[in-house]
Design a protein around this nucleic acid. Sequence first.
RNA 1: GCGGAAUUGGUGAAGUGGUUAACACGCCGGAUUGUGGCUCCGGUAUGCAUGAGUUCGAUCCUCAUAUUUCGCC
Length: 375
Amino acid sequence: MKLEFKVKKEDKETKARLGEIIYNGKIYETPMFMPVGTEATVKTLSPEEVKEAKSGIILSNTYHLWLRPGEEVINHAGGLHKFMNYDGPILTDSGGFQVFSLAKPKDISEEGVKFKNHLNGDHLFLTPEKSIEIQNKLDSDIAMSFDECPPASASYDYLKASIERTLRWAKRGKEAHNNPNQMLFGIVQGGPHEDLRKFSALETVKIGFDGYSIGGVANDHESKEDMYKAFDYSTTYLPKEKLRYAMGIGEPIDIIEGVIRGVDLFDCVSPTRLARHGHALTKLGKLNIKNSQYKEDFTPLSKECDCYTCKNYSKAYIRHLINAKETFGARLLSIHNIRFLIHLTEELREAIKEETLLNYKEEFIKNYYGEPNEK
RNA sequence: GCGGAAUUGGUGAAGUGGUUAACACGCCGGAUUGUGGCUCCGGUAUGCAUGAGUUCGAUCCUCAUAUUUCGCC
């Protein structure tokens, strides 16, 4: 195993923990935000720019790389790290999310999932074994079990049956796993139901994994309350010494609430997607750079931000680039947004060290959403 | 100088003698949570060149004026 994890401190007031990932002699602290690079690139950014934002782990996707360029190509390149020139840790999603976003319920069977290739219409079949085999070949540092990610609005009975099948898939995946350098994570599902989350967590832990993910959150217009319950119910039944990862989260406030409930890792497409659509994350809330009020605003997105974008460019300039559909605009906003979320986790770690996490949350909400009477 | 045609929002334009003037772009907002990368959803002309007339009623008909444009001398 190339990657090790240790819990360094547990918060007294909340379930939050401070941890360390040791990888290639370098130490990365948790809680951590992981930028998403589905197609073996964090969209619009170079690896140098990602690292300059003080990134740790980044994500990539089994499903997409399987279709193109194919796992063999990446294997022949010497693995994903060499292929994309990123020497930090890499986590691969299993294609489980694509079961949710691309396949229909009738395409899911005990054996695996039928997909229609979104690039050319080919019929594809992905199984737990195949997903793990692809991830082994990609040689990521953390692989995900192949799971079904049902919508949070799915019925209780559907969720229960889905969890049981995901458990069988997890077992099959673990048996197929064959890369001593790579961690394998199990995934907890169960929507907002305490008993289902408990069952899913305990049974997944029984199979035994190197870390545990919380899946099926923040999809299908799930309420924030339900999401936070899902965090709580899941982490309660997970071993303390293993990494916990909330898949697809998220919004700044969701990361904070996740940390409070004992989650270590987060990933989300939002910083790069929001950037492409002209939005910047700031302490004072989300800012739409296309708004006319920024037309002649020659100040940075944020005065206290230490990112490349904020040190060198104005809102008016970025607004112009986004309006002109120049990719440099998306790049500048992506750099800023990724740095913003990573910086948020830096502050959360500091707050855990100082034992001021709940105060930090209160302060953050006040700034980000404004005083209740002001808006 | 004479004759013809045209004049609808920021732009390109559709349209009708009778309730809310189509559509597109632009503009102004909003959305986006394990990424099917230029997406999705709203809003946006109290007015149809100006003035007068016909009519129960006119952006639509008539006349005048202005502007644009084409042709002829």
